[in-house]
Nucleic acid binder design. Structure first.
Length: 474
RNA sequence: GGAGUGGUAGCUCAAUUGGUUAGAGUACUAGCCUGUCACGCUAGGGGUUGCGGGUUCAAGUCCCGUCCAUUCCGCCA
């Protein structure tokens, strides 16, 4: 028999009963009943219950085994009867009566329990990363990641793409974020930059004639973290294709995204019928309706532009701003009028925390329209707002006023906040979309025209010659 | 870089308007228990309440500073 195991801890079933087996793993749980002892043994594959009896000379040692000690046992498989069967465990119909025990590694007391749901403070979890990764949730996440990457590689290869590795120690290529820098030994005082994305290298591969490239690409960006953005480094599926149109790229990406999500998730995808073209939304429309270029389409709230209604209104703050070039964005919400005053106040606080100067609103109920700004608006203006926002009794409409880009962004964040707080986000479904017709240029703070941050096509100043003459260590 | 929130036992948390010796669960140690599966029961050890200063008869609690964490803004394909 193999020195460490004949089976894994997730493997044994009723038809193994009577066999002598050897298992290795970590002491996951321990239940000491005095005259006998249960230990749940865990490895990568699962958990199996071991039974120790006191007539064995290693019984005393077994009762002192700490959580996460590594042991190898030899024993015989027996069936569990009646209510000793554990239907929650895949191996719950059998257990191992231990005949031999080898303690491979005796664990010290743990800083946190592997059986814990969340494992405690991040600092501790990172210090004892090997323990953290033993926790079921993280272990599953890492396995899922490996399976997804394998699936992506298979799908891309099947679609005729070839995988390349592009350089990590490179010269800086402006992508917008700060570069990570690595000091150069051969050129003291000068630095390599880590790539923020393989953009220029993959384009080089197309120029060089390789036609279809992909890479599970490491990207490095020296920026601060966000809730949905880990700092420093991450991996992305990176693609480049030659002699194609926008639609060809969309089709290639839709196939791999649809297939991968369908393979690994039970959630519906769009209509749930199979690969279909993803919804396409022009940039301007997305910024207006959702206040974002990555809209969450599961939230049934659409922003409207009502600037013209306020232009000649008696609400001086908005009217003046609109005449000065600002816009007013309305966020209509269904069935919300019954919310207490505090709800509106808290939302106002939130609006200010994301940069709004204030948050105006109107509430529609059976008696009519109420709200702090109602008295500043004429009956005709009120009717125009009601019609443009599709407001009915029970609804409310929120208004933000600012320069166009700021108003869009603020309204977009309020839309998402409302969707989540009111539990209006559609459940168990992915709603993919393409944002198309991105602008090539935008205005910066001094109202000068500059390249839009995501514009991938403008040639750098000086053209191709400048690129070729560029010092790689600059 | 700016703002908000938080920091009490190894871990998760409690401690009334400022008021006795800062508690509980878990982990750890010792003991009991023949069918548990987060086993149960008894007892024990474990604390500079992040750190420094201040107010007060009295500070975990209030004030100031500082460090750390976290969320948002700035930044970010």
């Amino acid at each position: 028999m193999h020195a460490y195991r004949s089976h894994t801890c997730g493997q044994l079933r009723k038809d193994h009963v009577g066999q002598t087996v050897r298992l290795s793993g970590w002491v996951f749980r321990r239940r000491d009943h005095g005259r006998f002892l249960f230990i749940d043994l865990r490895d990568h594959y699962g958990v199996t219950q071991l039974v120790f009896h006191p007539e064995r000379d290693f019984f005393e040692a077994a009762t002192h085994l700490k959580y996460e000690s590594v042991i190898t046992i030899t024993g015989h498989v027996i069936a569990r009867e009646g209510n000793t069967i554990n239907p929650a465990m895949p191996t719950g119909e059998v257990e191992i009566v231990v005949d031999e025990l080898v303690i491979q590694s005796f664990a010290a007391p743990l800083p946190f329990l592997v059986d814990d749901k969340d494992g405690g403070p991040e600092e501790l979890r990172l210090k004892y990363r090997f323990l953290d990764l033993r926790r079921e949730k993280l272990h599953k996440n890492v396995v899922l990641r490996a399976r997804i990457i394998a699936s992506l590689r298979r799908r891309m290869t099947d679609a005729g793409f070839m995988e390349f590795q592009t350089p990590i120690l490179t010269s800086s290529s402006p992508e917008g974020a700060r570069d990570f820098l690595v000091p150069s030994r051969l050129h003291p005082g000068r630095f390599y930059a880590l790539p923020q994305a393989p953009q220029q290298f993959k384009q080089l591969l197309m120029v060089a004639g390789f036609d279809r490239y992909f890479q599970v690409a490491p990207c490095f960006r020296d920026e601060d973290a966000r809730a949905d953005r880990s700092p420093g480094e991450f991996y992305q599926l990176d693609i480049e294709m030659s002699y194609v149109t926008q639609d060809d790229v969309f089709e290639a990406v839709e196939n791999v995204v649809y297939g991968t999500f369908a393979e690994f998730s039970d959630w519906r995808i769009d209509d749930g019928k199979g690969p279909a073209p993803f919804v396409r939304i022009p940039y301007r429309e997305s910024m207006l309706k959702y206040g974002s270029d990555k809209p969450d389409l599961r939230i049934p709230i659409e922003i409207r532009d009502v600037s013209e209604v306020f232009r000649d209104s008696g609400f001086a703050a908005f009217a003046g701003a609109v005449k000065g070039g600002a816009v007013v964005r309305a966020i209509p919400v269904k069935d919300i009028a019954a919310q207490p005053r505090s709800f509106y106040d808290k939302l106002g606080d939130f609006a200010q925390s994301v940069g709004a100067k204030g948050l105006a609103y109107l509430v529609y109920n059976a008696e009519g329209v109420k709200g702090p700004i109602a008295k500043f608006l004429s009956p005709e203006q009120m009717e125009a707002l009601r019609a443009q926002c599709g407001a009915e009794p029970g609804d409310a409409v929120f208004f933000v006023c600012d320069k166009e880009s700021a108003a869009a962004k603020i309204a977009g964040q309020i839309r998402v906040k409302l969707g989540r707080d009111l539990d209006r986000v559609e459940k168990d479904v992915f709603r993919f979309c393409w944002i198309v017709d991105f602008p090539m240029f935008e205005y910066d703070e001094e109202a000068k025209k500059v390249e839009f941050s995501h514009n991938p096509f403008s040639m750098p100043q000086g053209g191709m010659e400048a690129l070729l003459n560029k010092d790689p260590l600059d």
